[in-house]
Design a protein around this nucleic acid. Structure first.
Length: 566
RNA sequence: UGGGGCGUAGCCAAAUGGCAAGGCAGCGGCCUUUGGAGCCGCCAUCUGGAGGUUCGAGUCCUCCCGCCCCAGCCA
């Protein structure tokens, strides 16, 4: 205790921050999340948001949301709106500090003139292709542009005329004058401004030259007084360039720290690939419940709490990783287990007729809403002579360890009665269409005075009370875990999972589910967690998305039996 | 073959020269009116490899191997 910094268990970034605080390098922590509005946010961005906002909160500091909107040809207002919504939904609070890099265009322009005056930047007439040729390769140094030694006066004049719109797109660029032989490619006279006669979503037609990301990012952080600029690994070798700009300008210097971006198995996390999925119609949109976007996860039924939990569990480091999607699923199960109300829904109904139950009798039985939370209370569920059970809960010739309904076996209908299978009715194709049972009136509520045990408990829906609902079952978007390392000639689109969506249009739900609102979440007993989809309003019937299944021990046993030749 | 990073269990990830945390997955068992949840136990004689320094090395040194990123007027 005392002067030792306790770093145990903290990620390396927090350890650095602890050190900076202790040494007095910084007094208050200030972080930011700097998205480019050219697509929807995904779970990888959530990692960054949780890191940046989490740190600001833990250290009593501040957190900014800033759009890095330096490229009007890719960016749209729709994206800034969705991003704002998603960051807010995740619970990160930027208070009154919502900024745009485009807010700094004028300042950036002035700074550019400053560099020109110092002889550290020049207007270059080389075309894009020529710049590439002059840049050299990874192993050979580049050559200096023939325009590199223009006078300050000429550069200033040309740059001002670039701004004034005298030149067409691509005719000229403003470049930093650094070192064409630098082993770090980023230092080989990088482009600071390009001519782009394009309308910007915020500045409109005010500008026809736009600053590059490299020329914008570090200074934006500097302007905002960001103490720790957290970004992903690919910007590590841009850091010397940012340092160079900041030093030439003589302005406040934030500390950049890089961490590894998130990868998750069986999905892709790159805006380019996600855009492709959207544009090719493989998914219904950025918020398709199969998408790893924040909007998709939200529609799928994920909660901000589960996403935060996930981001905390995966940790932060500099090692490339591929996190098992099972961990994400664990997090949402863990959260929903505690808070989701239980309901009964039968996906693929099989009729059960209880022969010794009175024809027109209906009983309303008590059912616990959530065994994990007594305060969730109870509800009434109807029971009658004819009920539906899950087709998979009956087998005429069951394998070993099958505890569900089969001829002669007694099972419990959850919250209701014990029933015993007495007969099976089949159609001409030999398919079971109806099962006959008898019930034990003594077992009302699910237990008997004699205390005898039944191994199986089934969910059910009373036939005459069942409410038709649509249920959408999702699986992973891709069939292989690692989409970053595919065989020669294969593309990630070659591994799309044809069964990533299965729609069940005629499931039957208990009556309490007849009136639900989009976003509401439930556990359907023995099936999984489900979330009411927004289509509920347009389709005029309840539509549920399966967020995640329950853990399925029986499926595991089946797999084992199969493997052992059972 | 230039530069910048990274290698700890099936997957993440701690460790800061003192006897390899934790989580997910997996495997046993208990319990159960959800084959859910919960509970208990097991799961690295070993840190990419080889040498070296040290009483002591995942941590320090040397060499080697492997993987990722950089040649946009994208971010």
């Amino acid at each position: 205790m005392s002067e030792e910094v306790d770093r145990t268990g903290k990620d390396f970034i927090r350890q650095i921050i602890d050190g900076d605080l202790k040494s007095g390098k910084v007094k208050k922590i200030h972080t930011r999340f700097p998205p480019e509005p050219n697509g929807y946010l995904h779970i990888g961005h959530a990692k960054s948001i949780c890191l940046n906002y989490g740190i600001a909160k833990e250290y009593g500091g501040k957190f900014n949301l800033r759009f890095d909107d330096t490229n009007p040809s890719k960016e749209e207002a729709e994206y800034v709106e969705s991003i704002i919504e998603d960051v807010r939904w995740l619970g990160a609070d930027w208070e009154d500090r919502l900024f745009y890099a485009s807010d700094y265009f004028e300042q950036l322009y002035e700074w550019a003139e400053q560099l020109i005056k110092k002889g550290k930047a020049y207007v270059c007439d080389l075309s894009a292709e020529e710049i590439r040729e002059y840049r050299g390769t990874l192993t050979e140094p580049g050559r200096e542009s023939p325009y590199r030694n223009r006078s300050v006066e000429e550069n200033l004049d040309l740059f001002r005329r670039m701004r004034a719109g005298e030149f067409p797109d691509g005719a000229k660029t403003l470049r930093a004058k650094i070192d064409m032989a630098a082993p770090n490619m980023n230092m080989r006279d990088p482009v600071m401004y390009r001519i782009l006669h394009r309308k910007h979503h915020r500045t409109g037609n005010k500008w026809c030259i736009y600053p590059s990301y490299d020329w914008t990012h570090g200074q934006s952080d500097s302007i905002e007084g960001i103490t720790h600029s957290l970004c992903t690994l690919e910007f590590e070798d841009h850091r010397p360039l940012y340092d160079w700009f900041l030093e030439q300008l003589g302005i406040y210097h934030p500390q950049q720290i890089e961490f590894a971006r998130l990868n998750i198995s069986h999905t892709v996390l790159s805006k380019r690939k996600l855009l492709q999925l959207v544009e090719t119609g493989v998914v219904s949109g950025w918020d398709d419940p199969r998408m790893p976007t924040i909007a998709g996860l939200r529609r799928r039924g994920y909660t901000p709490e589960a996403i935060w939990d996930f981001c905390e569990r995966i940790g932060v480091s500099k090692a490339d990783s591929l996190v098992d999607i099972g961990l994400l699923e664990h997090c949402i199960r863990d959260d929903l287990n505690r808070r989701a109300l239980r309901r009964m829904v039968v996906l693929r109904p099989l009729k059960v007729i209880i022969d010794n139950y009175p024809d027109d009798k209906v009983e309303w039985l008590d059912a616990v809403n959530n065994p994990e939370d007594e305060s969730a209370g109870t509800r009434k569920i109807p029971f009658s002579k004819e009920v539906f059970i899950e087709r998979s809960d009956f087998m005429e010739n069951p394998p070993k360890k099958y505890f569900r309904l089969y001829p002669g076996n007694e099972v419990r209908l959850k919250h209701a009665y014990y029933i015993t299978c007495t007969d099976v009715v089949k159609n001409e194709r030999g398919e079971v269409v109806e099962v006959h049972c008898t019930y034990d009136p003594e077992s009302r509520g699910g237990g008997t005075p004699d205390g005898r045990r039944v191994r199986g408990t089934l969910h059910f829906v009373s036939a005459k009370h069942g409410v038709p609902v649509e249920v959408r079952l999702y699986d992973t978007l891709f069939t292989v875990p690692d989409l970053s390392n595919l065989p020669e000639g294969k593309d990630f689109m070659d591994y799309l999972n044809p069964n990533s969506l299965e729609v069940i249009e005629n499931a039957l739900a208990e009556p309490s589910l007849s009136n639900v609102k989009p976003g509401e979440k439930f556990q359907f007993l023995r099936l999984g967690y489900f979330c009411v989809d927004k289509d509920t309003e347009t389709l005029k019937k309840p539509v549920f998305n399966r967020t995640v299944t329950l853990k399925d021990t029986w499926a595991k046993i089946q797999r084992k039996l199969k493997k052992n030749g059972g």
